[in-house]
Design a protein around this nucleic acid. Sequence first.
DNA 1: TGCTTGTTCGCACGATTTGCAGATTAGGCC
DNA 2: GGCCTAATCTGCAAATCGTGCGAACAAGCA
Lengths: 151, 151
Amino acid sequence: MRNPEQLVERFRSEGLKITPQRQLLFSLLHDNAEHPTAEALFITASAQMPGISLRTVYQTLADLTEMGELGQVTFDGRAVRFDPNLTDHHHAVCDMCGAIADVSIDHLDAVSISEPNDFSPSSTSVVIHGTCAKCSAPSKNLDKPTNNQTT
Amino acid sequence: MRNPEQLVERFRSEGLKITPQRQLLFSLLHDNAEHPTAEALFITASAQMPGISLRTVYQTLADLTEMGELGQVTFDGRAVRFDPNLTDHHHAVCDMCGAIADVSIDHLDAVSISEPNDFSPSSTSVVIHGTCAKCSAPSKNLDKPTNNQTT
DNA sequence: TGCTTGTTCGCACGATTTGCAGATTAGGCC
DNA sequence: GGCCTAATCTGCAAATCGTGCGAACAAGCA
């Protein structure tokens, strides 16, 4: 996703208005590697702008997604998560705490895939399930596995 | 997933009862490569057993999943799909009609993956998006793209 | 400042799934 | 076959996630 200033430019050039709600969400999403849900963004946004509507968060996220500025991923069949990282990458999901990390995979096209007849692939996504560092650490410190699935 | 007879054995040996509803679902799932949703199974089941409850379908699918006889996959963030194929495989999803096909990928472990520090992977799933044969066929016949996402 | 049009907001609703409680029934025992 | 008990089924309410709609509001421009 472009930085907030560039997004403002783009919105303006497309005749869309620059509202405080949109600007806040631009900044919350910029360089955000947490793959937040709409609900999580709403909570963060509400802290800075009490009164902002969840509906507006959904709307803005949908707009950005439609403009190609934001990616969407779902791993568990639950809430959609938003990803401002538009580079070619994949995801590692911690099955304990739900944390999601980006992973890069080189030469994925080198693996031998037996596709069904006449299937025309357009994109490939890889999800690695496992346990993250925090959750696999036995008891190094007092940290419990951070169940931050919604934060 | 085991065949219906074997599932009956397993259920019996675990003290679970063999009901007509369960037997019907066993047979509907056996060798089913369509990755049906609970709703789709409910519709099919209802045709053969009017009065069966959607709640029962969900319950039985959850039981089978918990027993490890059934896999679950979600691709679009909507309904969960059930997969009796427990072999190591992945999925090709048609973005036009929603059809899902199994694909096998060899030597997936050979690709170079830059995992985040201390992430302990347990499984990897690959989803290939694209267009299936039916939907990419221009107009060979009168078939329209079969929008069978719910059937 | 005032106008126009896009935005925001709140609410209702749709889709999917689960919790609950009462009715029903499978399976064992006589 | 009939009975008993615990498991199961069923219908309904409710939780979760997301979207449609209409009224109120505000950004951007003359």
